[in-house]
Design a protein around this nucleic acid. Structure first.
Lengths: 372, 372
DNA sequence: TAGCCGCGTGAATCTACGG
DNA sequence: GCCGTAGATTCACGCGGCT
């Protein structure tokens, strides 16, 4: 019965649940026009890395140095982007949706070209990484997110968005444009024969799951023109969607096929049970200054009034020759190695000295009440 | 009186703490080349609102369903963006930084043009709004963030980044690329005579404060080419920075001037930057020998006692066949390319093994106490 | 067993200065 | 402007080994 159904589907739509080998643009010419319901694309980021990078302990960072991420110029990258977006556009149904993920190296170029080609941006979604790689040289902010653009084929498309499902998924408040998810690590990360990561940029299944649950229906055909290790296919199968992948390297195709074959689709009813977890917001000391609860120049004291420190505008404290965070200065004035500045330092208020921790709790309550 | 004050200010530093009235590009021609340290720009992104398209000059685009007109409109916006970015680029010092804030309507075009003009993106920063406006029609994700691009004028620029201050601000972990901050509401939001909000997109002062604290020094000149209600000027004055604004509408200029006049600057002592080791005066290892803190012939060991080296009178170390600076020999004995000899090597003292870095710090403290 | 600790690692445009 | 060298720099989490 299942075999019969499959045979009918194949005759009807011969490109479901297959991986096409080859260059993205050429391979997409084999697909019929207006045949896919959703596209998820993870194109090369054009990182433009120059030289190696080591951690402070001198270990080497395993960076993306593959040939597929090398472009001679922005113009070359733009031409590449325009070509694959046009090829993808041809096979999209009129109401199909498109997702593209990238970083600041490439996402602005992708977004501008998308708009130039007539795609209609619906949201930009920020994937906030709960465990990003730190900045090892201390010369920039920690690059802790990637950006996804969600677009329809045109401004008047009747795209799919499962609003109610997303709201239920998110504890009955609207799903926001910033998603907190961990990197793909541990057992989920595919390894090669030597135990090294198979693919340098494997995306977490939770990310794809949220994309497919939000913007596709069961039975939809999902295209991934940069299939890689097959995360899109694995999640599509698990969630009762079909997939078409395009990939150039046979090693990735082999790994993806084995991976997808091992996936057990979940019962449709179980889709309802997925829930996102919400982390308690961490509030740094600087936020108290930004919120106006502590003024630059304010004097902090410890509970017994033995130590004093002055608050600087940048969120550091000064006490005599000591300078640094509330924790560092708290430790220094006591001659300790460590100190919890939140409970050690107090600020004068009408009701007496209040620990910083109490102000932080107040801010946390306010933010929770505001839905943050 | 105001005119006199203005004249004096002009003589002293002709373009500090003023608002230039007029079109952004034309007004910037009045500023000298390479004169500003930092730029914060909140350009208009009046595209695609309510299905209608308007050009940057507010003229209405006809026939919004027409693909050609969409192209024309994007092209107009791109030309506008290129023009003001070029004008800004001219007045930036070689090591100046640039911030641009926008949403998915415009930020991709701005980012791509930035790169085309030779700016070097350092981070894209996501402002996560703790209290965003909900999505009323339930057809998209709640648009809960805006994007800021932080860029240097060129790839080899030595831009300002107060890494240590940001880290202390954030409870001693690196500041990430996603910032959670509330919208500008309540008393901070400027109102017009009728109690309506004065400016449609007034940014919160906390956002500007973090930008200026991260990427400028006290006394720096900050340019805002789309001054609006003057948030950049107000925060700059409060944080001991100078500002130049450009604004077309007199109503905004009047409101901004009154607003900035009421700002009380923070005491300079509370503005001192937290200096990291990088900013400390350099002390060669030989100085420790000259000061008698390390004797020629002394034996150095690493923290775990695995490696030993002998100090020569000329400030080099010897360990087996290895000979050279504390850094070279530290790297060689470990088989690494690099090593920080100050933290790697220890010397025996009554209280146990002390890193060379502690001796160096003692020397620095002594020199500071001596007024050196 | 449970818990502690060390180790490995992730899409990264990652130094500054003097000669 | 090139080149050589001093010397500054990391967070979250999973896993395996040891107590």
């Amino acid at each position: 019965m299942a075999a019969l159904r499959e045979a009918v589907r194949q005759a009807d739509a011969p490109f479901e649940n297959v991986i096409l080998k080859g260059d993205c643009v050429a391979a997409l010419e084999r697909l019929p026009k207006a045949s896919v319901d959703l596209v998820f694309a993870d194109p090369p980021y054009n990182l433009q890395l120059d030289g190696g990078l080591t951690r402070p302990d001198q270990s080497v960072v395993d960076a993306v140095d593959d040939d597929w991420d090398k472009f001679a110029s922005f113009a070359d990258y733009d031409a590449f982007t325009r070509a694959w977006l046009l090829a993808v556009r041809r096979v999209m149904k009129p109401d199909a949706g498109l997702w593209v993920i990238g970083s600041y190296h490439n996402i602005f170029r992708v977004g501008a070209i998308l708009q130039d080609l007539g795609f209609w941006i619906l949201n930009d979604i920020v994937w906030r990484k709960s465990n990003p790689m730190p900045n090892f040289r201390g010369r920039r902010f920690t690059n802790a997110h990637e950006t996804m653009i969600w677009a329809a084929k045109s401004a008047d498309a009747r795209y799919t968005f499962n609003y109610e499902a997303m709201k239920a998924f998110n504890d009955d408040v609207q799903m926001r444009s910033d998603w907190l998810l961990p990197l793909c690590t541990g057992a989920e990360r595919l390894k090669d024969g030597a135990g090294r990561k198979l693919h340098p940029t494997q995306k977490p299944e939770a990310l794809l799951a949220r994309v497919l649950l939000a913007s596709s229906k069961p039975g939809d055909l999902v295209l991934d023109p940069f299939f890689g290790s097959g995360t899109t296919g694995a999640v599509a199968k698990r969630l009762g969607r079909s997939y078409v992948g395009v990939e150039r390297e046979q090693a990735y195709i082999d790994a993806a096929e084995a991976r997808i074959a091992a996936v057990e689709p979940i019962a449709p009813a179980a889709l309802q049970l997925l829930r996102g977890k919400r982390a308690e917001p961490r509030i740094p000391f600087g936020t108290l200054i930004e919120a106006g609860l502590v003024a630059p120049g304010a004097i902090l004291v410890d509970a017994r009034g033995r130590h004093r420190a002055e608050v600087s505008a940048d969120g550091t404290l000064r006490s005599g020759a000591h300078r640094g965070s509330i924790h560092r200065v708290g430790a220094a004035v006591q001659g300790f190695d460590a100190c919890n500045g939140w409970t050690f330092w107090h600020i004068e208020a009408a009701s007496g000295a209040v620990p910083l921790d109490a102000l932080r709790q107040k801010l946390r309550d306010d933010m929770a009440a505001a839905g943050g």
